[in-house]
């Protein structure tokens, strides 16, 4: 079990842009602590000198010919936008 503080949970939630209800904060504090406590066993695996495996195919990113093809189009891109206007996404005002 690793003890996380309420402040740590709130800090992570801010980084992740997640609004949490009060009761969620305590639950997450407890659950994340238990999971991180379990994960601590990775320290016993003896892998510190090994290279990490970020991907299993380990090939360089392939290049392709730069040939134009059919794009999705503005209508397709905007089709699911919660708010849109004149071919743009609409968001709350960012700059006063």
């Amino acid at each position: 079990m690793k003890e996380l503080s309420r402040e740590e949970v709130l800090k992570i939630a801010r980084l992740a842009r997640l609004e949490l209800e009060d009761k969620e904060i305590e639950t997450l504090r407890r659950e994340l602590g238990a999971i991180l406590g379990y994960v601590a066993r990775l320290g016993e695996a003896g892998a510190d000198n090994l290279d990490p495996t970020f991907q299993t195919l380990a090939k360089p990113t392939p290049m392709r010919e730069d040939e134009p093809d059919e794009p999705l189009g503005a209508d397709g891109v905007l089709a699911n936008a919660p708010r849109k206007k004149d071919g743009f996404f609409v968001v709350p005002k960012v700059i006063e």
């Binding site: 949970v9 992570i12 992740a16 990775l42 695996a45 892998a47 090994l50 970020f54």
Partner: peptide
């Protein structure tokens, strides 16, 4: 939350990188 924690400054090496090494 768990992923954000594991990738956050100060924890990346201890969690994310370590997990990728054990994956090897």
């Amino acid at each position: 939350m768990l992923g954000t924690y594991a990738l956050s400054a100060g924890y990346y090496d201890a969690y994310y990188l370590k997990a990728q090494r054990v994956r090897t």
